[in-house]
Simulated assay, not measured.
Amino acid sequence: MVVKGEKPDGGGRSRGGRPPQTAQQHEVARARILTATRAVFAEHGYYGVTVSRILKHLGMSRATFYRYFRNADEAVCTVIEAAGDASLVALHASVGEVEGSIAKVLAGIEAHLRWSSEQADIAQSLEAGIHDPQNPVSRMRERVHAEITELLVTEANATGRGNPDPLTLNVYITTMEHTSYHMRRTTSGDEAAENNARTIMIKCALALLGTPEDWKLLEADPATLGLAE
Rank of each mutant, 00 (worst) to 15 (best):
G210S: 05
K216M: 04
H145N: 13
V105E: 04
E155V: 10
W115L: 01
K56N: 11
A193E: 10
R185K: 08
V40T: 05
C204G: 05
A86Y: 06
R30I: 01
G96Q: 12
D165L: 04
S52Y: 07
G160C: 12
V95C: 09
G5D: 10
G17A: 02
G10H: 11
E99D: 15
D121A: 14
T50P: 07
G129F: 03
E43W: 09
L88P: 01
T174W: 12
E147K: 15
E74H: 12
S188N: 13
R32H: 12
E142N: 05
T64S: 14
D165G: 04
T199H: 14
R30N: 03
F69E: 00
A193T: 04
I109V: 12
R38W: 00
T168W: 11
D214E: 06
L227G: 02
R185L: 12
R114P: 00
E194A: 14
H178R: 14
Q134A: 11
G10M: 06
H178F: 06
R15S: 13
P133E: 02
L34D: 09
F41Y: 15
E81D: 13
S188I: 04
H178I: 08
D9C: 02
R32G: 10
E43R: 15
H182W: 14
A42Y: 11
V105K: 00
A31H: 08
I130H: 12
Q119C: 04
L227W: 05
N71H: 01
I33S: 03
H178K: 12
S101Y: 11
W115P: 01
N196E: 09
W215Q: 02
N157L: 14
M201T: 00
Q21G: 08
A103Q: 14
V89E: 01
H92P: 00
G162S: 11
P136T: 01
Q134E: 07
L227C: 02
L167C: 07
Y172K: 05
A205N: 07
G5M: 02
R32T: 06
Y181I: 05
A63F: 06
A36H: 06
A31W: 02
F41G: 03
A158K: 11
L209C: 03
T179M: 07
V40K: 06
A63T: 11
Q24G: 02
G45E: 06
A103E: 15
I80K: 10
A90C: 00
R143N: 10
D121Q: 02
Y68F: 15
Y47F: 11
A193Y: 01
I80S: 09
I122T: 02
I80D: 06
R18W: 11
V89F: 07
L167F: 13
G210W: 02
A223W: 00
N163S: 13
Q119Y: 00
P19T: 08
